[in-house]
Design a protein around this nucleic acid. Sequence first.
DNA 1: GGGTACTTTTCGGCACGCCTAAAAGCGGCT
DNA 2: AGCCGCTTTTAGGCGTGCCGAAAAGTACCC
Lengths: 213, 213
Amino acid sequence: MANTSPAIEDYLKTIHAHTEWQPEPITPSVLATRLAVAPSSVTEMVKKLAAQGLVTHQPYGAIRLTDAGLSRALGVVRRHRLVETWLVSDMGYGWDAVHDEAEVLEHAISDRLLEAIDTHLGRPVRDPHGDPIPQADGSIVSVPTVLLSEAPAGHAGTVVRISDRDPLLLRRLAAGGIRPGVLVTLSGDTLDGPDGTAVELDADGREAIWLTA
Amino acid sequence: MANTSPAIEDYLKTIHAHTEWQPEPITPSVLATRLAVAPSSVTEMVKKLAAQGLVTHQPYGAIRLTDAGLSRALGVVRRHRLVETWLVSDMGYGWDAVHDEAEVLEHAISDRLLEAIDTHLGRPVRDPHGDPIPQADGSIVSVPTVLLSEAPAGHAGTVVRISDRDPLLLRRLAAGGIRPGVLVTLSGDTLDGPDGTAVELDADGREAIWLTA
DNA sequence: GGGTACTTTTCGGCACGCCTAAAAGCGGCT
DNA sequence: AGCCGCTTTTAGGCGTGCCGAAAAGTACCC
């Protein structure tokens, strides 16, 4: 029952990530793409996760986390985001460079170390990308946000969250001065920051940034 | 050639540990015991290590690290000891409680993070047990020491190093005030510390503590 | 020199997580 | 309804690292 492995944690985390900001359940093919594995590997692993009561899945259908699966996924996310925060706060990493390191460390730290890091950092509620850090009890501190692609033209707000999925985008934004906490205005396809900085965004870019509502 | 895995790293580290403080090469059965695996597993893995040029081994003979193997082993030891030092310095771990955590993390941190931790800690040369931390170039800063079991009766000195192999011993010593840096005197089977503290040691215990010569 | 106790190796197998190729199912379109 | 294209599952296999049982080698002792 307390069975786990890096692979299982990655599946749970990825299933969860898909529903974190929209409610459509994930399909096996999307999961396979995100994890960069063959579809047949997904079928196999999902079967195992279902047997452990972590997901529900009937053949040829979508995949949904159970309560148990969600709680395990949130644990992994918590690890990942606390590690990222630690790397930036203590180890001098740029907020655009922490993802890969955290991807490995999230599977390696004990509950005790996780707790020590959390305490050391002062129990932060958001990571360097602005993603909320699930608390130890599973609760999540959230603020109202608008996804850039859904914001009206001319919308102004503070950058709350930037998806860390695309490292290139992160570096472009960092270079353009766009980071969580910065006040920006949307003008067409361009995001204007302070001091005349501006970054032009494609459709994907506009799906990766959230501002205060 | 840059092939590695936690298992390979553990074998190299354990082979190295056996020769770190005495020159007898390790035998497969001792290696199996230390790693808590079956002897047949050792045969298999040693064959693989030999094929990669990391150890020399002829059938039914002892196992010796090659230069390449030694350098890889020192890298793992460096990771392990820097992680331990970090856990104690930054995360509030006791020096008797860091071993297991480091055992996992040593396989998970990147070269970049290792470097960041080293810098953050001010490039320490000894870990919390007093074990020397191999430097990035493979060099080791050493001081002359005497193993307790080889020290003359009445020998006094500063505790330089305590083997972290036995967690119970570490806790007993920590409880008795014996830790690296403390001035002690050997009286028979008992090690006297400052403030009238004293810890009685069995043969294993006397093989686990080094004092300044 | 021959037996015997011990160590080491070989051999067949297993769990995990992945793969490719082929079969099965699903949904849209005519 | 029937067909087609796409998704998903099944089936068979592979590499890694482990195991236990049995064979092979070593070493010691009489």
